[in-house]
């Protein structure tokens, strides 16, 4: 222990490391701007933390997951670039599940409630989160938004994340499945350009397939790129607008929902 400044005593859980006295360790007053008529301790100390910066969000996400599980809710975190068709995809999913599964939506956007309005017009219970300048949703925002929905009246909770393939990748929201969308107009190499997001998804959906020919979309190439980054992901190719390919996705959701209800 340092005899001069007393550091090394106390500190609770904090492990005080890096305190070898051979290193630079100021006890003189020359390095301080303020006067020194007082006698507080002012040594330089290195406190080891070795903790994840995502720790707080991870804890809140696990709390959400436990809460959603108790409610027997299937929770999806839907992510994509802006304009990949998240809102239309969610609206059509909810519409086609009507009478079988009840779907509620939490929508995240930087500004406007346009997406929420589009969903609400379709009769879907929806809560809008406007994040202002924040480029992603976090577990705390989702927890607050979820409290505004009557979750007991829902089977599936869809979280439409902010359109962004970078930032939301690091934020677990407490979802069961992360669903990443990629539209046929976006370029086949997108999974390679944004690997953290595609790697973290359990489901990858190629949307707007009705435009594939017009866009010159190379389906084999995108599937190869998806498998390279996200070999574990379940892949669907569909068009929410025409309904083509939706059945396989809806059957998958029904199975996942049944699995959640059994838990």
């Amino acid at each position: 222990m340092c005899q001069e400044c007393g550091c090394g005593s106390g500190g609770g859980d904090v492990k005080i490391g890096g305190h070898a006295h051979g290193r630079e360790h100021h006890h003189g007053h020359d390095s301080h701007e303020h006067g020194h008529a007082h006698s507080h301790s002012h040594g330089i100390r290195t406190l080891d933390l070795n903790r994840s910066l995502m720790e707080k969000n991870a804890l809140l996400a696990e709390r959400n997951r436990g809460f959603f599980r108790a409610k027997k809710l299937l929770v999806l975190n839907v992510v994509s670039s802006p304009g990949s068709g998240k809102t239309t995809f969610i609206r059509e999913t909810a519409a086609k599940l009507a009478g079988k599964l009840r779907v509620g939506v939490i929508v995240g956007d930087l500004a406007t409630d346009n997406d929420a309005a589009r969903l609400r017009t379709a009769g879907i219970p929806v809560v809008q989160i406007t994040t202002g300048t924040v480029c992603h949703l976090d577990a705390d925002m989702v927890s607050k938004a979820a409290s505004q929905l009557d979750l007991d009246q829902l089977d599936v909770l869809v979280i439409e994340n902010v359109g962004n393939l970078v930032c939301p990748a690091d934020y677990d929201l407490g979802e069961d499945l992360r669903v990443v969308l990629l539209s046929v107009t976006e370029g086949e190499d997108k999974p390679l350009k944004y690997p953290p997001m595609f790697h973290s998804a359990q489901v990858a959906i190629i949307t707007k397939n009705d435009m594939a020919t017009a866009a010159g979309f190379n389906r084999d190439l995108v599937l190869m790129n998806l498998q390279r980054v996200s070999h574990h992901a379940k892949i669907f190719v569909l068009s929410a607008k025409t309904g083509d390919g939706m059945k396989a996705w809806l059957d998958f959701l029904a199975e996942e929902n049944a699995a959640v209800k059994r838990k």
Binding site: G17, G18, H26, H42, G43, I44, R45, T46, L47, D48, L49, N50, R51, S52, L53, M54, D170
Partner: peptide, 10 residues
């Protein structure tokens, strides 16, 4: 990794 390793204080 996205960790905080240490903090130096005075």
């Amino acid at each position: 990794e996205l960790d905080i390793a240490a903090v130096e204080t005075s």
